[in-house]
């Protein structure tokens, strides 16, 4: 997993509540057996005017000019500004894979769906929770200023605006540690092999039908 320390990047505003994972990456692209290559199909149904299918040459498809990702001012965005309950719906990790593949490394929203939130951390994306009022204000600033950038600083848990206004955010200690060092959870868990074996032995006695 890619490390996450600090990031200064263009912000793209997704002004819609309850954006679900079907919208982030439509189901036809879930047929891929790979982890990468989902970027061109991020928000496919909103982003293109035609219906997308795997294997299409996306560079030849007609873009929806109204859709925010297609507006030149947000080109190269690395930070997604979103509304409440972002990432609801299915558990598909293809959603964070698509965001990452597109170039998004941090998301700012008032709230997220649990599974999506969790999946982000496993892929080096930092989902930041901020109160709805601050998010509202950021939406105003992004929309008013072309090329608007934010700086996300994970070690100090702050987001800095261009005017040097700084907003603090919370993040779980364990998740922060993994992101900062790009750690793989499986490796960490396998440091506790003995604990797992001890648990299994005990459990086998108490509930033998489970084994």
């Amino acid at each position: 997993m890619q490390k996450f320390e600090t990031l200064t990047g263009i912000v793209v505003p997704m002004d819609r509540a309850n954006v679900d994972t079907d919208a982030i990456i439509p189901k036809q692209f879930l047929k891929s057996i790979k982890r990468s290559g989902f970027g061109p199909n991020l928000f496919d149904e909103w982003r293109y005017l035609d219906h997308g299918e795997p294997g299409m040459d996306n560079s030849k498809r007609k873009l929806n000019p109204e859709f925010v990702l297609n507006q030149p001012r947000y080109k190269g965005a690395q930070i997604l500004l979103a509304r409440e309950n972002f990432g609801c719906g299915s558990s598909r990790e293809h959603a964070p894979w698509a965001l990452l593949d597109y170039g998004i490394r941090a998301i700012i929203a008032p709230s997220y769906a649990d599974i999506f939130y969790n999946n982000c951390f496993k892929n080096g994306i930092l989902p930041i929770v901020m109160d709805a009022r601050t998010v509202d204000q950021l939406f105003n600033e992004v929309q008013a200023n072309s090329g608007y950038q934010l700086t996300v600083d994970l070690p100090s848990q702050t987001v800095r605006t261009p005017k040097d206004h700084s907003v603090a955010f919370e993040v779980d200690g364990f998740r922060k540690h993994c992101l900062l060092h790009g750690l793989d959870d499986i490796g960490l868990t396998l440091e506790h092999v003995e604990d797992i074996r001890t648990y299994e032995t005990k459990r086998k006695q108490a509930a033998p039908w489970l084994f």
Binding site: R92, K122, L190
Partner: peptide, 14 residues
Amino acid sequence: GIGTSEVEHALATQ
């Protein structure tokens, strides 16, 4: 429900 990273984690470590 879990994501694919956790599917791998569950497979590898139970």
